[in-house]
Design a protein around this nucleic acid. Structure first.
Lengths: 138, 138
DNA sequence: TTTATAAATGCAAACTAGTTGCATTTTTTT
DNA sequence: AAAAAAATGCAACTAGTTTGCATTTATAAA
């Protein structure tokens, strides 16, 4: 299992009640989370600026990674790897966004092809995003 | 060559001076265009609301297609196919965004693998976006 | 060509996600 | 227990985008 407080310690992030609960929420959630999802979960008892700042902290320490979102809003998933690539979409796998529920899923089974360059472009990152109907919505 | 007025007629879009010039700009541009790019080109002589509404019109008629943007701003390219998939990124090819100039290029040479489903997800669209350094910036 | 109908435009105001400054509180370090 | 550092709440702000409405321009009908 995971121990949110221990993980926050290791990453040198202050163990406030909110950040501990937020990290636990990420570990327990099978879904990616938007700022709105988080505010709803905490019944708007936390300030949105705090949410944004916590997410930025978690992301910069490699605890969570950005995932694409149908509305181009900020959305994150827990990193399955110990240390995620910082400040970019996790580039190990593709993502899937459902037309109906707008949920973003990590497709661990869909590895991204490794292409280093094409027609003169020097490629450093490659993101693969699928859209359609997820298991519960189709 | 192309005839912007004829194309607007075919798509049943009013042939105003601005829309004709805008479509011509798209046809002449090797680059994708953001709202800001367009405002600059027209020296801010057109209202931004008009730009947004024209882009929406062009996109819904399949004349232009959305491309990914480093800042999540609206950005479009002319459709090379006669009828683009409406209201989505053109899904025939990948896109490349340059770290330096933030320009988005269509990678016609990078076809997107055809995957219909994976692990229970019903895939209807697949977008591939690369980032790195473009020819002029590297 | 004139008339009427529909679509496009400009402007200002509104909307919304996200950010920032600052005073206060909480956590960590010593 | 005291000092230093980090996190929080709040309000104000930013910037891209959208909307309502009156006016102008383009299209279709007579």
């Amino acid at each position: 299992m995971f121990d949110s407080k221990l993980i926050l310690s290791e990453k040198k992030i202050s163990k406030t009640k909110f950040r501990t609960d937020l990290l636990t929420l990420f570990y327990n959630s099978k879904k990616s989370l938007s700022v709105e999802d988080i505010l709803i979960f905490f019944n708007y008892s936390v300030n949105k600026a705090t949410v944004y700042r916590s997410l930025e902290s978690f992301e910069s320490k490699g605890l969570i990674h950005k995932v694409p979102d149908n509305y181009n809003h900020k959305r994150f998933s827990i990193c399955k790897e110990i240390n995620c690539a910082v400040n970019s979409y996790d580039n190990n796998h593709g993502h899937f966004i459902c037309y109906i529920c707008n949920q973003t899923f990590c497709l661990d089974d869909m590895p991204i092809p490794s292409i280093n360059s094409i027609k003169g472009y020097d490629i450093h990152e490659l993101n693969l995003t699928a859209k359609g109907y997820c298991e519960s919505c189709k």
